[in-house]
Write a protein that binds this DNA or RNA. Sequence first.
DNA 1: TTGAAAGCGCTAACAA
DNA 2: TTGTTAGCGCTTTCAA
Lengths: 318, 318
Amino acid sequence: MITIKDIADKCGVSIATVSRAFSSNSIISPHTKEKILKTAEELGYRPNLMARGLKNSKTQTVGIIIPSIDNYFYLDVLKHLELNLHKFSYRLLVNFIQHNGYNEADALCAMEDSQTDALIFSPRNTQNSEIVNRLKNKTNLLQLFTAPYKDISSVVTNDVYGVKKATEYLISNGYSRILYVGGDERVKGYFNALSNAGIIADNDLVLLNWENSPEIIKEKIISKKADAVIGIARQAETVWHALSRLYKDNHLNIPFIAYDDVNWVKMLDISAVAHPLDKIAEYIVEYIISRNKNNSEKLYKKIVKPFLIKRSSTNFSN
Amino acid sequence: MITIKDIADKCGVSIATVSRAFSSNSIISPHTKEKILKTAEELGYRPNLMARGLKNSKTQTVGIIIPSIDNYFYLDVLKHLELNLHKFSYRLLVNFIQHNGYNEADALCAMEDSQTDALIFSPRNTQNSEIVNRLKNKTNLLQLFTAPYKDISSVVTNDVYGVKKATEYLISNGYSRILYVGGDERVKGYFNALSNAGIIADNDLVLLNWENSPEIIKEKIISKKADAVIGIARQAETVWHALSRLYKDNHLNIPFIAYDDVNWVKMLDISAVAHPLDKIAEYIVEYIISRNKNNSEKLYKKIVKPFLIKRSSTNFSN
DNA sequence: TTGAAAGCGCTAACAA
DNA sequence: TTGTTAGCGCTTTCAA
């Protein structure tokens, strides 16, 4: 392994000078710097990140804890994030959570040991507040997509807005008996859109359970005469199954919008509410850079707007 | 930050003794060891991985370079791998390749700097042999899924076998004019199965191009009277599109097997050839552990067998 | 069984 | 502008 000592010897300077040649804000004569850089290149020198890290307590590494919810969406997140981090010489360490067994607390502890310069996670609740509080003093925490800890920076999507947009689009095309299948947070966007349009919401058209079967959804559509459907996250899959059966059995075909633009949604050309992953990745990187450069302690909170992608499952004129 | 010095002070021993308490094969009296471990626990001591790494040139980190081919399959790979590595206190560093721009060479260099104890990658060809050769002396390289470098360890899937199994299944159910859409390597399994069954292969039923359009496939099925289809990797998506149109326009419904059991394939209940990811992850970990423990230099080569998952797209009696 | 001390490769304060 | 030196936290050899 080539070290700065090898370069120093070859150039006839001290190791300190070599070190300076690689540091951007160090005083060094252009001539020696050039010579050092050239020899480093020749020798194939690569700095030892562990030695550097040990010295200045920085790992140049960002950790991300992925909730193992079989959401393929996260591969896109990872890709965008890694590509952006790379530009700033940060590396990405990943960690997965299992439903049973290895959990968030374990993942947080593992990341604590890794001494990452920043740690991105998507907590469901505040049950690990003890560990989280400890970590707050050791690294830069960032909540992604979910933000139960109010005193920790976050980058989240405005899902209420996203659902509202989807609902509005259906309403503007003449649909008023829209079935909503998903969580009780985002449903606000659904109610907002309806009330703005002067439509009285029918609670029978709202399924707030995350575990509805295709049968229940199908039955609901028929009995309540739903004329369109919005399906959130994994429930979108179930909605799709319900709609397939409905089409096969009753030859009924109603508009459908999926929340989260995942692979199968694209494949089947289904309209979807998508998230600007490039923007999200940019924000995350911005946070990390600012925290590690300026050492600002200000809370960083970003809310990004999802957007609607119109495809053939809502085949209207506009 | 709590260091071994803090523990040493509190216990009235030297830092060397504290270090010994944490090393499994060190001579230390059970009594002092117990006392040290207890104090460490109380103080909330966490070893500094960088200091440890600097000393013994081990990072306890494994790198993986993901070819950014939009294959969601890789999220599963990552998950299985990380979960297995975790058991042995290894961490996973990921890196993505872009089609244009940041490429395999860049990724390899980045990983070189990260000094990972092992590096997993999926090279398409041997064009980066220079960097690869340099890395061979610095880390433990492992080729995953593809193995163009013959002198480097690898874990690959037997895709010829996989395609053969799929073909055999179709044949055993009475189909003989099977359309194959995919690469020219795996097609061997297709020809094998046919010849074993005494069926003379029709070259018109083989599309070795990776960029066939749904129209071409649809037209092929009709003109060549194909009675079943096998679609490989991303071409499986195109096949599915062709089949949807065929069903809509001609009300023709023929059996279909997709190669690679990805999300949309599961969603649509399409029969598929899948890979034992848990087994693959186990092999990878076995390789890493053996290389970092025993320091064996033997080439590690594993070939795993894919398996067929029967679903409704091949709705036979067995 | 334990301690003292050297050193892994690097950075930065201080001195020249 | 450059060199000397201490030290980041840990492991390990050697001596006690």
